[in-house]
């Protein structure tokens, strides 16, 4: 089932994110793809995330697709100008990839090639407009294409951004520019997320809540202090701190993630989840099981 069919069917959709390798060896990737077999609806390939140079998201998306998964290619505007973005989109379509998530992309200063020239010839909303144009059979200059693309375009959003209003306005512009679904920054606080969802529901786009498992209270504090738009509530930090050992802190984090997912699903708060495992991929099946998403 395609991601679009899954989201439109009304089922609680699960997407997971995989980072391409820094190198050419894809053994680990293939292991993760096996692990996710039959468990997730689609797999995102990240695009030099955190501005750290890796294999291209386009190449990994093709590997994901060949493995039998639904692939979502993430595209940032940091590394390519409008020519390169369009030609990669045409290439992605030709390779069979049908889902693209458009984002502006972390600044190069965050990454491992700090001297690089950041591009940002377009940004996320303009990239979505570009995708819509390619879907309609024209490049962004209006020149007809020999064969249009057929992308199901998505985007990202930070539900707990501060200040929130300009982020919500940008969210609306993404919807207007053709984003049909959103994968969110990691969320922890259902009350805050509900405020965002009451706004998002009016816009008609599908929302997959971002899930990042907390390993301990230090990680939670780090996210709060350093990552834009992430707010782990004090109660959760206390719960992690109360766990006596490293292993038990991790189990607590997994239980909290599962609890959050279960609530999102049971109360139909959003349309699914987007799991950013960040090294915790092996535990994803268990989290899903605890959350009631897997029967085995």
């Amino acid at each position: 089932m395609s991601l679009q069919e899954a989201l439109e069917s009304g089922k609680f959709v699960v997407t997971a994110e995989i980072a391409p390798p820094k190198g050419t060896n894809t053994d680990e990737i293939k292991h993760l793809l096996d692990l996710y077999d039959g468990r997730v609806d689609a797999i995102n390939a990240t695009d030099n995330q955190s501005a750290v140079m890796r294999m291209s998201s386009l190449a990994l998306s093709k590997i994901v697709l060949d493995h039998g998964h639904e692939a979502v290619v993430q595209m940032t505007c940091r590394d390519r100008n409008r020519l390169a973005l369009q030609s990669d989109l045409l290439g992605a379509h030709a390779l069979g990839i049908r889902n693209v998530v458009a984002m502006t992309g972390d600044h190069v200063i965050a990454g491992d090639h700090k001297q690089a020239k950041p591009v940002y010839d377009v940004e996320s909303v303009q990239l979505l407009q570009m995708i819509r144009s390619l879907n309609e059979g024209r490049d962004m200059m209006g020149t007809p294409l020999k064969g249009p693309t057929g992308f199901y375009a998505g985007a990202v959003v930070t539900p707990e951004a501060n200040p929130l209003e300009p982020q919500l306005i940008k969210f609306a512009k993404k919807v207007q520019a053709g984003a049909k679904y959103f994968q969110t920054q990691a969320i922890y606080d259902i009350t805050m997320f509900n405020i965002f969802m009451s706004h998002a529901r009016k816009m008609g786009a599908k929302v997959l809540a971002g899930i990042v498992v907390l390993k301990n209270e230090r990680m939670a504090q780090y996210l709060n202090d350093n990552i834009a738009g992430i707010r782990v509530p004090a109660g959760m930090i206390a719960e992690l701190a109360a766990a006596p050992s490293k292993a038990e802190k991790l189990e607590t984090g997994i239980r909290m993630a599962a609890r959050l997912i279960r609530q999102l699903k049971e109360e139909r708060i959003c349309d699914g989840i987007h799991i950013m495992a960040i090294g915790m991929e092996e535990r994803v099946p268990e989290i899903m099981k605890q959350a009631g998403l897997l029967s085995d």
């Binding site: 502006t104 600044h107 303009q126 982020q167 940008k170 920054q185």
Partner: peptide, 20 residues
Amino acid sequence: CPKGILVGPCGGCKDGKCEV
């Protein structure tokens, strides 16, 4: 804006400050 973007804040905006 260090990215010079033209349509609203990016996801790196934290408490009104830039990710850079």
